[in-house]
Design a protein around this nucleic acid. Structure first.
Length: 571
RNA sequence: CGGGGCGUAGCUCAGUCUGGUAGAGCGCUUGCUUUGGGAGCAAGAAGUCGUAGGUUCGAAUCCUGUCGCCCCGACCA
């Protein structure tokens, strides 16, 4: 490919709003162009990388016996009503009507369509297990797109779905897929951190996220210092430290105008970990709007994902003041003391308060708190659990190590879905004894564009991306220095020679100064740059420079082909 | 959804406060000179100042609506 004929445009300056290295370089290098918020046009250079990534993934999917399909993006709403997700998912699911007034959606993932296909195809246990997968556009009306290709609204995903007779078979296939993911990311030059994650609206039981650790990531990961534990912060567990003490008598104290933990603990001269707060949410259960009180020690934060999962509700809203007051509670002075008879409230107690003692809590009266509040004696609830958000510095779940927090970008995930979709959508098969059985499912996703962005976050310098060999847009970046006939002839000859050995060559044949060409070469990040100039050619040599290195070496032009073959493992 | 910011040439921005009819750098076109890390000189093309309405003799500038984009938040009582 000749640069002079290629649809490429590099920018000297970063476009406004780009902050992540991947966002900046994708725009500056001419890989993508933004069309609207969260919507990007992929330009020829970017498309080559996506195609390479897809080739790697296709290779690994075939190794785990995947069968590639292509399912519709536009789907009837009825399908999503069958699975129950039409009502469970919020505005992220784009709904519209077609010309004949049918309710339709743009698929944000393809469990429904796959299950529909499977219930048509599947009839006998002899067909199981199988895995179906695709590269397919998804549309998610994200509340806020950000970070270039990291969080967009329209994107291509590799989504795979497996069907099994039982959990044991799913478990063993899940392990194979786990390995396939390790392979894919390794081939993209990435060493992911694998964490346990929330299963969210997908349902299911166990899920893992493959995360790239980066200072710019939008997810927070909790990792034990000794490596024994890793999880997404949303669901990360930790061991609470409790003080042991005899229960002291309940005591009412005046705390006028003191509502926050800081104010109350300062006034009463106690540490925040000796206080209890009531974090209140508005939830909907059985079509009724309820107020949920989550009681937790003052120094801890609530994980709303843990609360949501415990209550099995699709969403939580922080309760507004007038909503709280409509239940007769006082914001700033709320607790569960004296509310035992209230059936209209959901009271949840984090282990930090159910196992702690002598805490300072609200008196449910404007301007008053209670000292020495104790679980069971002063308040009670059957809903005790882990509702606290893990933070750096806390003890790991086994208590043997300390947790640390890092930021990361999710580049892939694998789920054990179970029978959520196969059951609700009537997908079944006959076993050996002729009985109807419901297959158990797994699903496995990788965002292609996000992986391209992650590869840059993972591998770049101040001048541009440094592409790994397997996903580089071209194998060789050839540059002529000067317009002398012998230089141009040599370049043409070399290009033809390398292409005939199957290498992809980008030849910067433009009439530009060397500095311009080298800057662009850095933005395009091709692993090998070969520069041909009159000076070197006198000795029959050209410059060999790796993108990751600063220095070049002079190599006889006759040896370049072999050197390239070795570099790309094709010798 | 809430809060903040920004929309002026392909890109980055100045001009807006204090109203007087459009600017710079980069990029693009042409010519000459240059040629190893984003060259120099000269000439040139390019913007209904996001959009609609209002105020005014006169609006990029003031007012109102509207659309778009970016950032923060979506939670600790």
């Amino acid at each position: 490919m000749l640069v002079s004929k290629y649809l490429l445009k590099t920018l000297r300056e970063s476009p406004t709003g780009a902050e992540l290295p991947s966002h900046i370089f994708l725009l500056r290098g001419g890989y993508v162009k933004q069309l609207a918020s969260g919507l990007y046009s992929i330009l020829p250079l970017g498309k080559r990388i996506l195609t390479k990534i897809e080739a790697v993934i296709r290779d690994e999917m075939e190794k785990v016996a995947g069968q590639e399909v292509d399912l519709p993006l536009v789907q009837p709403a009825e399908l999503w009503m069958e699975s129950g997700r039409y009502g469970a998912i919020g505005a992220e699911l784009l709904r519209f009507k077609d010309r004949s007034e049918h309710h339709m959606v743009l698929a944000m993932t393809h469990e429904e369509a796959i299950t529909d296909l499977a219930r048509y195809m599947l009839s006998s246990y002899k067909q199981l297990p199988f895995m179906i997968w695709q590269f397919k556009l998804k549309f998610r009306d994200e509340p806020r797109a950000r970070g270039g290709l990291v969080r967009v609204r329209e994107f291509v995903m590799k989504d795979a779905y497996s069907f099994h007779r039982d959990d044991a078979d799913l478990d063993s296939y899940y392990q194979r897929m786990y390995q396939a993911y390790e392979n894919i990311f390794a081939r993209a030059g990435i060493k992911p951190i694998v964490v346990k994650s929330d299963t969210g609206i997908m349902g299911g039981k166990i899920a893992h996220e493959f995360m790239l650790e980066t200072g710019h990531g939008e997810d927070y990961l909790i990792i034990a210092q000794d490596g024994s534990y890793s999880a997404n912060q949303e669901i990360a567990e930790f061991q609470r430290v409790h003080t042991k003490a005899d229960h002291l008598p309940l005591e009412k104290v005046a705390t006028p105008g003191k509502k926050t933990i800081e104010e109350v603990s300062a006034l009463l001269a106690v540490k925040p970990e000796q206080t209890m707060k009531a974090v209140m949410y508005e939830v909907e259960q059985d079509k009724k709007r309820m107020l949920a009180l989550v009681l937790i020690r003052g120094d801890l934060d609530v994980s709303d994902v843990k609360v949501r999962n415990y209550l099995k509700v699709p969403w939580l809203l922080p309760a507004q003041e007038d909503f709280i007051r409509s239940f007769g509670l006082v914001p700033g002075y709320a607790s569960a003391v004296g509310l035992a008879e209230r059936k209209d409230l959901l009271v949840l107690a984090d282990f930090s308060v159910s196992e702690g003692n002598n805490l300072v809590g609200g008196a449910n009266e404007e301007g008053f708190h209670l000292k020495h509040v104790n679980f069971r004696r002063d308040f009670n609830t059957p809903h005790c659990g882990d509702f606290a958000k893990a933070q750096a510095g806390y003890l790991s779940p086994d208590g043997k190590s300390t947790l640390r927090a890092v930021r990361g970008i999710e580049i892939g995930n694998i789920f054990k879905l179970g029978t959520k979709f196969s059951e609700s959508m009537g997908c079944n098969y006959l076993d050996e004894s002729g009985k109807h059985q419901t297959p158990t499912m797994g699903c496995y996703g990788i965002g292609i564009g996000r992986l391209m962005a992650a590869a840059i976050e993972n591998s770049h310098d101040e001048f541009g991306p440094i592409w790994p060999k397997e996903i580089t847009p071209f194998h060789v970046h050839l540059v002529n220095i000067g317009k002398e006939p012998e230089v141009l002839e040599t370049c043409a000859k070399l290009m033809q020679e390398w292409e005939s050995q199957g290498l992809e060559v980008l030849f910067d044949d433009r009439d530009e100064r060397p500095g311009v060409k080298f800057k662009d070469a850095d933005l395009w990040g091709i692993p090998v740059r070969i520069a041909v100039g009159k000076k070197g050619l006198v000795e029959g040599k050209a410059e060999w420079k790796l993108r990751k290195d600063k220095e070049f070496s002079l190599v006889p032009t006759a040896e370049l082909a072999q050197k390239l073959a070795i570099f790309y493992g094709r010798s």
